[in-house]
Amino acid sequence: MKFNLKVWRQKNAKDQGKLVDYTIDNINADMSFLEMVDVLNDELVRKGEDPIAFDHDCREGICGMCSMYISGRAHGPQHAATTCQLYMRSFKDGDTIYVEPWRAKAFPVIKDLVTDRSAFDRIIAAGGFVSVNTGQAQDANALPVEKADAEKAMDAAACIGCGACVAACPNGAAMLFVSAKISQLALFPQGQPERNTRAINMVNQMDEEGFGNCTNIGACEAECPKEIKLTNIARMNRDYLAASLISE
């Protein structure tokens, strides 16, 4: 297969950046998108050019590192798949493919397709945990959890922190990510003591980072590789409002 690529190249955070055209040939349909970029990079290095920088690590859809906006979609055209789990058979021979970094004020570009997503870490640091020191735990079976709740919590906990939700959201909002963590812990008895403060602190940190506001468009849910649901955002809204209106 042959493709025309338009790839965002930007030397560093201060550089203006622009789309650069590349053509690549002899691509196997069973290659992953990242392997296709590997092949292109290999060519670039051999030609003495600067290879395209991109984030990746596990290449099996779980670490959340890979992050490309491909032909106008976060992680590309395939539903419920990360960039590393996208295969070239999803494209047609001769396609022109745009490759851009996540775009958000809170995710500044570091180089080419690599962005700084440390805002997510700071949001977790603001409250995405249960405050229990090592050794303080009681027996694991002392607190039963209804199976349905445990399953819902697991659904929310599946978030890989990739930021596709932010990238896809026309508002650059991070609510799907934040609500997934708030929901996971709100569904467990262990999460109750800090439920109110957690919701308030995490939302405040999210706002501070410069993410946009949710207007319930739903692009995040549609593009999330782990199919995190909008119901989590509703749960977060409920918790946040209850926490701030009712608690003293």
Binding site: V132, Q136, E146, K147, A150, A153, A157, Q184, Q190
Partner: peptide, 15 residues
């Protein structure tokens, strides 16, 4: 420790 942190291990119907 992990359960106390809210790790969502699989559970049976009794919770």
């Amino acid at each position: 420790q992990c359960v106390a942190q809210g790790v969502p291990f699989a559970r049976d119907y009794g919770g």
